[in-house]
Design a protein around this nucleic acid. Structure first.
Lengths: 218, 218
DNA sequence: CATAAGAAACATGCTTGACTGTTTGCAAAA
DNA sequence: TTTTGCAAACAGTCAAGCATGTTTCTTATG
C-alpha cells in the first residue's frame, strides 16, 4: 500500500503493523470510546487482519495499555520540545496555560477519560499503566523544574502551580462533554487562571510579543 | 411505612422497587464501573428480578440516565443545605473548598467519570443527560450567587472562582486513579488553592456574628 | 549465489459465554 | 375481574480467545 518497496525486512513489516495497530487503537479510543474499541474494530481501522493483532498483542488489554504508553511518551516529547523552545526565547506564563489546554483538548484527556474508569476497576490494567503514568509525571516535573530555574521561582511552588493548572484543565475538559455551547464559561475561567498564574511568576520576562498560540476554547 | 407492613399499595411497592434499582445502579457504577453495570447485575444488587427492572425501565440507557439524574438532584439538595448553613453562620472560604472536595471524592465524580465517556459517544444518552446537568449547574450558580451576596464580592467573579474550584477538584479526583500513595500532591495543591480563593474573598468573616442573626431561618 | 528449510508474520474459522431486549406466565392489588 | 407489578424463559447479537492454515522473509549450505 505504501511505498511499493517490495521487499521489507521482517522487522520493518512488524514495526509498521504494530504502529498501525497502536495508532488505530488511540484513534478508536478517541473517536468511538473504549467500549467500542474491540479487537475486530482495531484490526479493521488499522487495515490488517485480526490475526495480525493477536500475533502482536496477546490480549485486548495489552494493546490498549501499550498504545496508551506510546501516546503518553509522545506527548512528553512534544511538551519537552515546547519547554526547551519556551525557555530559550523566554515566553509568557499565559503561553504555558494555553499550551496545556491545547495539549489536553487535542485528544490527550479525552483518551485519558476513556481508560481511567477501566483502570480504576481492573487491577491488572491499572498495574500496567501506573509505571507509564509515573514516567509521564516525571517528565512533567523535569519541565516544571527547568521552568522554575529560568524564572527564578521556587521549584516546589512552580511544580504546585503547574500541576494545579494541569488539574484545572483536566476538569475543564471533562466539562466540555455535557456543557457544550458555552464558550464564555471556558474563556472566563482560563482568563482568570492565567491571571492567577501570572501573579505566581511576577518577574515575567519583558519579551515575546511574537508568540501567538491559538487559545482554543469551545 | 415499610418493613413489616404486609399490605402495601401498588404505588409504594413500585416506588420502593424503583428506588432500590436506582440506588443499585449508582452503587454499581461506583464500585464496578459502567461496563460491568449490566442489567442482570443491577437487578441482583437491588435484590429484584431482571423482569422487575425491565418493567420499570425500558432500556439499560434509561435506568442509568434516570439514576444519574436522581443522584445529581440529591447532590444539589445537599449542597444547598450546606450553603444555607454556611451563609447563616458565616464560614471561611476554606470550608467551601473542603466541602467541594469531599462531595466530589465521595462518589460524585467517580460516578461521573463512568458515564461521561459514554455520553460523549452516544448522542441519545447525552441528550438525556444534558438537561439534568444543566439543572445541576443552575443549582450551583444559585448557590454561588447567594455566596456572593453574603461576601459582597462581584457575583460574576464569585461564579468564576467557584466554577474553577469545581474544575480543579474534578481534575484532582481524576488524578487519584493512577496517582495513588501521593497525599502530598493533593494536600499541597488544595492548600495552594485555598490561599488563592481566600484572596478572592478579602472581607472574609468580618461579620460572622451578625449575619447569623440576620439569616435566622432554619 | 541459488535455493531449500525453517522461522516469523499474518489470515481465517470456530467455540464459548454474556448481555440486551422481548415475550409469556402469574400473583397481588384495585 | 381487570389491571398492575413482577418473574422466568427465549432469541438474537457479538466479542474474546484459540487453533489451525497460509504467506513472506531469513539464512545456511552446497
Amino acid at each position: 500500500m505504501s511505498g511499493t518497496g517490495k521487499r521489507r525486512s521482517q522487522k520493518e513489516r512488524s514495526a509498521e503493523t504494530s504502529t498501525r495497530l497502536m495508532n488505530a487503537t488511540i484513534d478508536l479510543l478517541h473517536d468511538r470510546g473504549l467500549a467500542r474499541t474491540t479487537t475486530p474494530e482495531i484490526a479493521r481501522q488499522a487495515g490488517v487482519s485480526r490475526g495480525a493483532l493477536t500475533h502482536h498483542f496477546t490480549t485486548r488489554e495489552a494493546i490498549i495499555s501499550v498504545s496508551v504508553a506510546d501516546m503518553l511518551s509522545q506527548t512528553t516529547r512534544d511538551l519537552h520540545r515546547f519547554a526547551e523552545d519556551f525557555i530559550a526565547r523566554g515566553g509568557s506564563s499565559d503561553e504555558i496555560v494555553d499550551y496545556i489546554w491545547q495539549m489536553m483538548d487535542d485528544r490527550l484527556f479525552y483518551v485519558t477519560m476513556e481508560y481511567l474508569p477501566e483502570a480504576r476497576h481492573n487491577p491488572d490494567f491499572r498495574a500496567e499503566l501506573i509505571p507509564t503514568v509515573r514516567d509521564f509525571h516525571a517528565g512533567l516535573d523535569a519541565i516544571w523544574t527547568a521552568l522554575a530555574a529560568r524564572t527564578g521561582v521556587d521549584p516546589d511552588h512552580t511544580r504546585i502551580v503547574m500541576n494545579a493548572t494541569m488539574c484545572l484543565v483536566r476538569g475543564m475538559i471533562s466539562q466540555t462533554v455535557l456543557r457544550p455551547n458555552d464558550p464564555a464559561y471556558y474563556q472566563e475561567m482560563l482568563a482568570f487562571w492565567k491571571q492567577q498564574v501570572r501573579q505566581q511568576f511576577p518577574i515575567e520576562a519583558a519579551s515575546s510579543q511574537e508568540s501567538r498560540r491559538k487559545a482554543g476554547t469551545r
